[in-house]
């Protein structure tokens, strides 16, 4: 009976192990391995080239530098400003004003819509001729400020960045769920001791919800690290290369230029950045890697 059970357990493990190898382990090994090769679709075979791809990336490729810088700036904005906004909204909703459940659902809704649809919607909102942004500016008499937001050299970066603020609802939902699970007698006791609501927020609720906030920060960072459709479908990295990020750059190198070895060096950079971000955030939030899962 015991042997029978063990046998079946191993059989049950086969699908997940195959999936793990197919989409995670094997590609990871391949990405790292081929990043040390001169490996292009046009050239037959692979030529070992040591760190040449990496050296070229960091010393010669100006587009890569822009992409790297943009990705870092977006990750920072997202993990700090964005999460802060989400946490702030969660604290507001935690006061349970009338209709808070409805509002929570509304905040969540942008996360349900496909990013590509959202990108198209924003393209229309920013349309220079009849988009709602310029329309609004003209209506309030600031028509001189109206411009081609997504494709202007000075405005593109900001215009793309603004889009992401509607995604704050995700953080709000997660943090609010944690806040609601805190027993209310804790807050009542604090009120009786003379705490103001804001003191309760900052001294009691936020420290308790810290692990959830850490999680949302890590999710926000990795979201920005892999962000692709919203940029691909709004500016496509332009104008020039003003709004390139690493995902777009990698796509460009791998699928358009078919320069595989080079693209995979970018992939390795992305993977390392992901690990660095995660550990930095954990370290900053005072978690020393003792929480597995």
């Amino acid at each position: 009976m015991h042997k029978e059970k063990l046998k079946w357990c191993l059989v049950f493990l086969v699908p997940v192990v195959v999936m793990f190898c197919f989409l995670y382990a094997v590609p990871l090994v391949k990405v790292i391995y081929t990043s040390f090769f001169d490996y292009k679709l046009t050239v037959k075979g692979m030529q070992f080239s040591g760190f040449k791809n990496y050296v070229e990336l960091f010393t010669q490729d100006s587009v890569f530098r822009v992409a790297l810088k943009n990705t870092i700036v977006w990750i920072l904005l997202h993990t700090f400003l964005h999460v802060a906004l989400g946490v702030f909204l969660a604290l507001v909703l935690n006061r349970k004003p009338r209709g808070w459940q409805f509002v929570r659902t509304v905040y969540m809704s942008p996360n349900i819509i496909a990013a590509s649809a959202m990108a198209l919607i924003w393209r229309i909102i920013y349309n220079p001729d009849w988009g709602i942004v310029n329309g609004f500016l003209k209506a309030i008499g600031l028509g001189s400020l109206a411009q081609n937001w997504l494709f202007g050299v000075n405005t593109a970066f900001g215009a793309v960045t603004v889009i992401w603020f509607i995604y704050a609802g995700y953080t709000t939902t997660l943090v609010l769920a944690r806040l609601l699970s805190i027993p209310s007698d804790l807050q009542e006791a604090a009120f009786i001791d003379g705490c103001t609501p804001i003191q309760v927020d900052f001294r009691i609720l936020l420290p308790i919800a810290k692990d959830t906030i850490t999680t949302t920060m890590i999710m926000a960072a990795s979201y920005m690290l892999t962000m692709f459709p919203l940029i691909y479908m709004t500016t496509g990295g332009g104008p020039g290369n003003k709004t390139y990020n690493l995902s777009l750059f990698l796509y460009q190198k791998a699928m358009i230029e078919n320069n595989y070895g080079y693209a995979n060096a970018v992939g390795v950079v992305v993977i390392i950045m992901g690990m660095v971000c995660m550990n930095l955030i954990k370290w900053m939030m005072g978690e020393r890697g003792d929480r597995q899962t």
Partner: peptide
Amino acid sequence: FTIIMAAMVLPSTAVIQPVYMQ
């Protein structure tokens, strides 16, 4: 289990070329 869980942190866009080739 720990090894499989580690896959959670792998950014999906980073491995797009090997997956394409597979």
